[in-house]
């Protein structure tokens, strides 16, 4: 008995570490609650079925893109192209998918394959993912403009209907976010192969020594990112009903910020699916909060940066408190 008491009071002991980890895990949720409280304080009516529906509408595609980014980050890479990819998928959704669904779905499948191949290329040639995906940023944007030189197109009706679904009691965006978070959580955190995928980010040598193929791991993670990007693009068009080649450009930064806010780290395979979804919601709500505070939309982006900095600073403080205790 005395052993456990000693070890939990020792500096850096298991007890302190557990507390530190719990604190870090609740940090994303805490920031979301803080923002919700602030909005409620400023305008209580906003926290209602209708208000949440309105404020969180755009959170669905953001959450999907963030989860996609999280998959790439799980293997210590970064996808700078996800923004224009979402834009490109949006253009396809509003044109090809609307006119000939089969061809549209075939293109989406092809895109996911391209993502998986990028993962393979990055692994086999040992390339910096930042530069490769930077090139892809241009490629997707170029393709988007080729598909849809001028804003326009029409979202398929079923997609519009889906995105404006009136669900009972709980607003659709909230339900969608929960579904996205739970599916990603179960897939990455609860399945047996998900453990291998995450382990590859934590100690690639050990995973390879145990007989797993790192090539396959990279391809699957990038492929999953592509899949999430496809869903994000479709969801976005379901909301906006028509497309624009530059619609998704901001999603690159939003998705990275969301995944980091949600507790993700760039190295070590430390990612959190549910945290990522919460991070995406937080960033989306930050805009509404500023509106309620009558702060000009000029400062919207600053608020996103500011939240990011504050959360990261809090994380450093938690780590430091843990090691100094």
């Amino acid at each position: 008995m005395s052993v456990s008491v000693v070890s939990s009071t020792k500096p850096g002991g298991a007890g302190v570490l557990r507390v530190r980890r719990t604190l870090r895990a609740v940090l994303p949720a805490l920031s979301l609650i803080l923002i919700l409280l602030a909005i409620w304080h400023l305008n209580a009516r906003a926290i209602s079925y209708f208000g949440l529906n309105l404020m969180l509408n755009l959170a669905v595609p953001v959450a999907l893109a963030t989860v996609g980014q999280m998959f790439v980050m799980a293997s210590n890479d970064l996808d700078l192209s996800i923004g224009t990819f979402v834009g490109f998928i949006g253009c396809i959704t509003a044109t090809v998918l609307h006119d000939s669904p089969v061809l549209g779905i075939a293109i989406f499948a092809g895109c996911i394959v391209v993502y998986a191949l990028l993962g393979a290329l990055i692994y086999l040639r040992n390339l910096p993912s930042i530069v490769v995906t930077l090139g892809m940023f241009f490629v997707w944007q170029g393709l988007a403009i080729l598909v849809l030189p001028k804003p326009g197109g029409h979202a398929p009706d079923w997609l519009k209907a889906l995105m404006s679904l009136k669900t009972p009691y709980v607003p659709f965006p909230v339900m969608a976010a929960v579904v996205i978070g739970v599916v990603a959580y179960v897939g990455l955190m609860r399945t047996s192969y998900g453990a291998v995928l995450r382990g590859a980010g934590g100690n690639a040598v050990a995973v390879e020594r145990a007989g797993w193929s790192m090539l396959k791991v990279k391809m699957i993670l990038f492929g999953l990112a592509g899949f999430c990007g496809v869903l994000a693009g479709m969801a976005l068009i379901g909301l906006t009903t028509s497309a624009d080649a530059n619609l998704g450009n901001g999603y690159t930064l939003l998705s990275i910020a969301g995944a980091i806010l949600g507790g993700g780290e760039f190295t070590g395979g430390r990612v959190s699916p549910i945290g990522s979804v919460i991070g995406a919601l937080t960033l989306t709500l930050a805009g509404s909060l500023l509106n309620f505070m009558h702060i000009s939309p000029d400062w919207q982006v600053a608020a996103q940066g500011g939240i990011l900095i504050v959360v990261l600073a809090a994380r450093v403080l938690i780590n430091r408190a843990g090691s100094a205790a």
């Binding site: 086999l124 090139g135 892809m136 241009f138 170029g142 393709l143």
Partner: peptide, 24 residues
Amino acid sequence: SAGVRLLVTGLVIIAVIVTAGGPR
């Protein structure tokens, strides 16, 4: 069109980095 311009730029960047990078 602008689309092709972007596409070519992107492919050039990827081609350069793939050539410059060594095999694992």
